[in-house]
Computed example of a mutant assay.
Amino acid sequence: MSKRKQHLVETALRLFMAEGFHTVGIDRILDESGVAKMTLYKHFPSKQALILEALALRDQQFFQQLKQFADAFPIQHGERIAAIFKWHQAWIASDTFRGCAFISAAVAFPAAQAMAHQFAARHKVELEAYIRASLPADMPPATASHLMLLLEGAVVLGLIHGDCRHIGEAIRAAEGVLSVVAPSGLLVG
């Protein structure tokens, strides 16, 4: 990707996350990025194409950062699951937290056939698959869905309330879920 295109996509993503997909117009993105309209349309035939590219960038950033942190922890005793929750806790507590781009996209484009909505759905499927792959082998597959619900709820409530207390509650609930399915003492500590 060229530097100008990359800068355009990064600017669009930042603005979309700060102000919303429908609120931010092309002219605003062009003003903020310093890119000419002709350059924008050379790379993106529509605002929707730019939105999809911004979501792709966020998807790449998200998984790269999450996996870089969590993959350093072993799976066998639930440490990787704990790391996934701790990474989310740090993200929610950060000054740059503006909620989840994919939840925002699904809300902004509620029709299931909308491309941004479909992209958001794929991202969440991939996140749940990562959680499932991070569980010890003896865990029931449904455990990943339960943990996903806790994580997603904490992200939404973190945005709504502007704090990270709910991720702490989600961590304690995850400990409960894991101790029920693996009563041998596996906890997300």
Rank of each mutant, 00 (worst) to 15 (best):
L50H: 07
S46P: 02
V9Y: 00
P45A: 12
D31H: 12
L40C: 12
T39A: 13
E10N: 10
M17H: 06
I29T: 04
A12L: 08
G25E: 09
L13V: 01
G25R: 14
R28G: 12
F16Y: 15
A54M: 03
A36Q: 15
E32K: 12
L13A: 13
Q48K: 13
V9A: 05
S46V: 07
L40G: 05
M17L: 15
D31F: 08
M38D: 10
T11S: 11
Y41P: 03
L52A: 05
V35I: 15
H43G: 04
E10I: 00
L40S: 06
L15R: 06
E32D: 11
L50V: 08
F16W: 03
H22Q: 14
F21H: 12
Q48M: 05
F21P: 09
V35W: 01
R28L: 04
D31P: 00
K42C: 00
A18G: 10
G20A: 08
E32Q: 14
E10H: 06
R14S: 14
T39P: 05
M38L: 08
T23W: 00
T39V: 13
M38K: 12
F16M: 03
I51H: 01
R14Q: 13
Q48I: 01
G34C: 10
E53W: 00
G20H: 08
I29C: 05
D27W: 00
A49P: 01
L55N: 03
A36T: 11
F16E: 01
A49Y: 02
T39W: 03
S46L: 06
G34K: 09
D27T: 14
T11K: 06
A56T: 11
D27R: 14
T39Y: 04
P45M: 00
V9S: 03
E19C: 04
V35R: 05
L15W: 04
E32C: 11
E10W: 00
H43M: 01
M17S: 11
T23V: 11
F44V: 08
H43N: 15
Y41M: 09
K37E: 12
G34A: 09
